[in-house]
Design a binder for these strands. Structure first.
Length: 219
DNA sequence: CTCCCGATAT
DNA sequence: ATATCAGGAG
C-alpha cells in the first residue's frame, strides 16, 4: 500500500473509506449514555483519557445523584471528585463540571450553548468536546471529532501524517463533505474501539485492510 | 511543555 | 511493568 501523493489520490482514498465505513457501521452514534445535552457534556468531559465503558459505569449513579444542572453547580468539588473517581483525573474533572454547570446557568440561561465559540468558554470543553456536543446533541457539524482513535486511524490509513488533533481535523474537514463529519467521527471512534485498537489491531478482521498503510505493522 | 490519574489489556 | 483509554488547563 503506497501513501497517497496528491489531493486527487487523497480524495479517492477517502471516498472508499467512507463507503466501507457506511457499509460496516451504518447506524453508529455516540456511545456515551445520556438523556439530555448537559449529561452528554458531563459524560464527554469525563471521557478524557478514559474508556467510554468506564464512563458509562459511572454516569447512571452520577445523574441520579445530581439530577439537574443546578445540582452540579452547587456540588462540592471534593465530593463530586469522589463520585467520578474511577474515571481518573477526578479533581480536574469535578472542578470542570461544577464550573461548566455554573457558567451554563449564569451566562447561558441554563441551556448548553449551540456554538463552538460559546462552548469553548466552558470549563473542561475544548474543540473535541464541543464537536461531540454540537454534532450529537444539536446535529450541528461544527467540525470533525479528533480524539485519540480518529488521530491513530487517520495516520494508519495514511489519510494524513499530521500529529496534532488540530492539524488532523483541518485535513479531515477539507477532505470530507460537511454532511458526513459527524457520522464519520462516530464511525471512526467505533472502529477504533473494536478493530483498529492501539496495541494489537485486528487487521485480519478489518474491513479496510486493503486500504491500510499500516496493515500488520505495530506502531 | 507538564500535570492531572484510575482501570484495564498486554 | 507498561501502554493506553471518546483531553484539557496552566
Amino acid at each position: 500500500m503506497t501513501r497517497p501523493k496528491n489531493a486527487e489520490q487523497r480524495k479517492a482514498r477517502i471516498k472508499k473509506i467512507l463507503e466501507i465505513l457506511d457499509l460496516t457501521y451504518p447506524k453508529v452514534t455516540c456511545a456515551l449514555h445520556h438523556s439530555n445535552t448537559f449529561e452528554l457534556l458531563v459524560a464527554t468531559i469525563l471521557s478524557a483519557q478514559c474508556t467510554d465503558a468506564r464512563v458509562n459505569m459511572v454516569t447512571p449513579g452520577l445523574f441520579k445523584k445530581y439530577p439537574t444542572i443546578a445540582d452540579f453547580a452547587c456540588a462540592d468539588p471534593k465530593r463530586l471528585a469522589q463520585d467520578v473517581h474511577s474515571t481518573g483525573f477526578y479533581n480536574n474533572k469535578a472542578k470542570s463540571i461544577v464550573g461548566a454547570a455554573k457558567r451554563i446557568l449564569l451566562h447561558f440561561g441554563g441551556e448548553v450553548p449551540h456554538t463552538m465559540e460559546e462552548l469553548l468558554t466552558i470549563p473542561g470543553a475544548a474543540r473535541k468536546t464541543a464537536n461531540v456536543v454540537l454534532g450529537t446533541a444539536y446535529g450541528i457539524a461544527s467540525g470533525v471529532v479528533v480524539d485519540t482513535h480518529v488521530l491513530r486511524i487517520s495516520q494508519r490509513l495514511a489519510i494524513t501524517q499530521m500529529s496534532t488533533p488540530e492539524r488532523v481535523e483541518k485535513v479531515l474537514i477539507k477532505l470530507l463533505p460537511q454532511d458526513r463529519w459527524i457520522q464519520f467521527s462516530h464511525q471512526m471512534i467505533h472502529h477504533g474501539r473494536t478493530f483498529c485498537v492501539a496495541r494489537k489491531p485486528k487487521c485480519n478482521k478489518c474491513p479496510m485492510d486493503d486500504l491500510c498503510y499500516a496493515k500488520d505493522k505495530t506502531y
